[in-house]
């Protein structure tokens, strides 16, 4: 974890072109906004279902539920709450779950209380604006990385990386939290490449398509989307699980910054300049 700029003889390479750096930071900010607004949208109906239909009177697969008899709108505080995963229930009373009074609309069961100024409708409006941002910048970046041959050069695993020996070595290095040095640090390592490929060509397309499956107008034109996800509520559940997967990716991504050298990694994503860590013992 050394920033070896003071050490003479270290080699600097221009690692990230401007387009990559721009896309990275715009996407990082957009995803933070989408997770924030998305969580607030989920908060008002924290129940996930499988199939076409799901509401307070049907059984969810994942949910924060009131254990008070009388359904999803409890009357006592703190709200008696249970986290449901399939048929398993964990009591989370006092930790999660609040009753929100919505005047004429009665009581709502939510994960956490949010300030009144966080208008639910506005959260949705921002979510859609940010979704456009994510989609348009993703489309631009995908074209850039595919057309320029960058995908093959930087993201697809090289023949040398997919030998049994190299795969075992890469896994072992990750388990020991050992970042590549010297020659190996010139390229992304195997797990790094796979995680970027999964985010770029699996998670982002899935989250966009499952989001669009919740649109009445889009599904009027493309009803196939319902079949793709197995129903509207399934699409909503896939959407939420993809968001969870993006959170996990972001977490590991940030932990890896510290493993590989925080200053060097962050600088390379700001200025493009990356310092090759020297082989140990040289």
């Amino acid at each position: 974890m050394t920033d070896g700029s003071a050490i003479a003889g270290t080699e600097r390479v221009y690692r990230h072109p401007l387009a990559v750096r721009l896309w990275h930071w715009v996407t990082a900010a957009t995803v933070v906004g989408l997770l924030f607004t998305g969580f607030n949208i989920f908060n008002i109906h924290p129940r996930l279902y499988w199939g076409e239909v799901g509401n307070a009177h049907t059984i969810p697969i994942i949910a924060l539920e009131s254990t008070e008899t009388g359904g999803p709108r409890p009357t006592t505080r703190p709200a008696p709450a249970a986290l449901r995963l399939g048929s398993h229930l964990w009591d989370v009373t006092g930790h999660l779950g609040v009753v929100a009074d919505a005047g004429e609309d009665g009581l709502y069961f939510m994960i956490v209380a949010t300030p009144d100024s966080w208008q639910f409708g506005a959260m949705r409006a921002w979510h859609f604006a940010l979704a456009w941002m994510l989609f348009l910048t993703w489309a631009c970046y995908s074209v850039y990385t595919l057309v320029g041959g960058r995908l093959r050069r930087t993201l697809l695993p090289s023949a040398r990386q997919v030998t049994a020996r190299a795969i075992v070595q890469d896994l072992w290095d990750h388990l020991r939290l050992r970042a590549p040095r010297g020659e190996a640090a010139r390229h992304y390592n195997l797990l790094q490449k796979l995680s970027y490929l999964i985010v770029l060509f699996c998670l982002i397309p899935s989250i966009v398509l499952s989001g669009l499956t919740m649109s009445n107008a889009v599904t009027a034109r493309f009803p196939e989307l319902y079949a793709l996800f197995g129903g509207r509520q399934s699409a909503r559940t896939v959407h939420a699980l993809c968001a969870l997967a993006l959170c996990m990716f972001a977490l590991v991504h940030i932990v890896q910054l510290f493993v590989a050298g925080f200053i060097n990694e962050v600088r390379s994503m700001i200025t493009g300049q990356f310092e090759i860590p020297r082989e140990s013992g040289k």
Binding site: H45, R47, V53, N55, A56, F120, G121, R124, R232
Partner: peptide, 12 residues
């Protein structure tokens, strides 16, 4: 038809 509430639930 399916009524889709902006809160996330729906019903037919």
């Amino acid at each position: 038809t399916m009524h889709n509430c902006d809160e996330g639930w729906n019903a037919v």
